[in-house]
Structures are given as C-alpha cells and as structure tokens.
Amino acid sequence: MRARPRLTVLSGPSGVGKSSVLAELRRMGPDIHFSVSVTTRKPRPGEVDGVHYHFVDLPEFHKMVANGELLEHAEFAGNHYGTPREPVERALAAGTPSLLEIELQGARQVRAAMPEARLVMLAPPSWGVLVDRLTGRGTEDPAVVARRLEIAREELAAEPEFDEVVVNADVRSAATGLLNLVVGPVPGA
C-alpha cells in the first residue's frame, strides 16, 4: 500500500543551489505538484502570471492573508510573498505529493499550519563551499554578500527544526535525494 502523499517543504540558505536542484528535479519528470507563490512585486521580463508567480496587488494579498488562503507569507525587500493553500490541499487530496521552496520563516509557518509536512533543508557540503558560491558570483556588493552569509549562518543553525537534510555537493545527487524524500525511492534514479 502506498503511503498518503505529503507536503514537502524545501528550504536552505542563499547560494545553496535550491533553484538548480529544483530544475533538475523537474527534468526528472516526477508527478509532483510544484507550488506557485503569490507576490505583490511586479513581473520581471519573461515572467508569466500563474507560472512563475501569481501576481496580485497589496489589497488582494492582505485579503488572502485575512481569509486564511495562504499557508505562509512574508515580506521581503518591500514585497509580499505567500503560498496559496488551496492548490496544495487539492494536489494532496488527489494523491499527488506537493513541494514548496520557501525560506526558513515560511517553513516554520507551514509546520504550524500543517504539522505533518516534511521539512527538508538543502545544505552546502561545507561552510567554505557556501562562501565560495556566494562570493564567486561577483555580481553583488560585498555588504550584500556579508548580509547573505549572516542570514545563511542563522538558517543553517535551524537544521534541528528540519526532518531531513539533503547536502548539495552535486545537483543530480541532491535532486535524486530530494525526489526520494518526496515520492519514495525511484527505480533507476
């Protein structure tokens, strides 16, 4: 008998490779519901409403919060972000595992709203590797990098709050490890 599908929450510090691991997981083609967040920020060039985000204005976002329509929500850099509850619950009711990629505070909110959710931390192989990844980009001001590293240290310190840890030393291996947690071991993966 197959276990009831559950919600899996992926979180980890900036620079750990969440986007790369999720892109690889999507390429693997599993039957997983990938949540699409709601945001109040304006779409960037090439972003499609309902694919990258659900773009809403601030009054609509506040209405969603007040009506309990979001599993979690937060403000970041002057914009609001949240995870719609209904699509996640619909996927789970249909027997499809659901996966969210959110930051630590959001993961804590989901744990409070859905205690049965599995929280997975994506971790770097070492602190030095994470520092290299963030400084190696060369695209951000050193003060911004320093702040990201400070936040990363806090996020990694929260590891005991998570049910599982997947180390991203190799994107394919990390994606396979995450896939096994979300849907169970996959033959040939």
Rank of each mutant, 00 (worst) to 15 (best):
A117C: 04
H80C: 13
R137Y: 03
R153C: 05
A77D: 11
A91T: 01
L99Y: 02
R133A: 00
A113Y: 07
T139L: 14
E155C: 07
G95C: 01
K63I: 09
L99W: 07
P45K: 12
A113E: 03
D57H: 07
R44P: 03
P59V: 06
D141H: 14
A143N: 06
M121V: 04
V144M: 13
H73P: 05
G78K: 05
A117V: 02
S126K: 03
F76R: 10
R85A: 15
E161H: 06
E140K: 06
D141N: 14
V110F: 12
G46D: 13
L70M: 09
R133Y: 03
F61C: 08
R147N: 05
Q109R: 10
A77L: 14
R137K: 11
E159P: 04
E101L: 07
L104C: 07
E103Q: 10
A66R: 15
P87M: 14
V38M: 14
L99H: 03
L119A: 02
E47H: 08
Q109N: 07
M121S: 08
V88W: 00
P160D: 10
D57I: 09
L70A: 07
R153Y: 01
E103G: 14
H62L: 13
E69Y: 03
P125N: 09
T135V: 06
A91P: 01
A152S: 04
F162S: 10
V145H: 03
N79Y: 09
A77M: 13
L92S: 00
P115V: 01
M121Q: 14
R111A: 15
M64Y: 13
T39H: 13
L130S: 02
L70Y: 06
N67R: 15
M121N: 05
N79W: 10
E103L: 09
R41G: 11
L149S: 00
L119M: 07
K42T: 14
E159L: 15
S98P: 01
R118K: 10
I102Q: 00
F61V: 04
E159C: 09
E140S: 06
E72A: 12
T96R: 15
P142G: 05
E47S: 09
T96D: 02
I151S: 08
E101G: 05
V65D: 12
P43T: 06
A93R: 06
V48A: 14
P84K: 09
D57N: 10
S126L: 06
E159G: 10
G78M: 05
E103I: 08
R148V: 00
G138D: 01
P84W: 11
M114T: 08
E140M: 08
K42L: 14
P87T: 04
I102K: 02
G106Y: 04
G95A: 03
A66I: 03
V145M: 06
P59R: 07
G128I: 06
G128E: 13
R90V: 15
A77K: 12
L71W: 00
F61I: 11
N67A: 15
Q105I: 10
G68V: 01
A94D: 00
A117E: 08
L130I: 00
E161D: 13
F162D: 09
L100D: 12
R133L: 00
M114W: 10
A112L: 10
A123R: 03
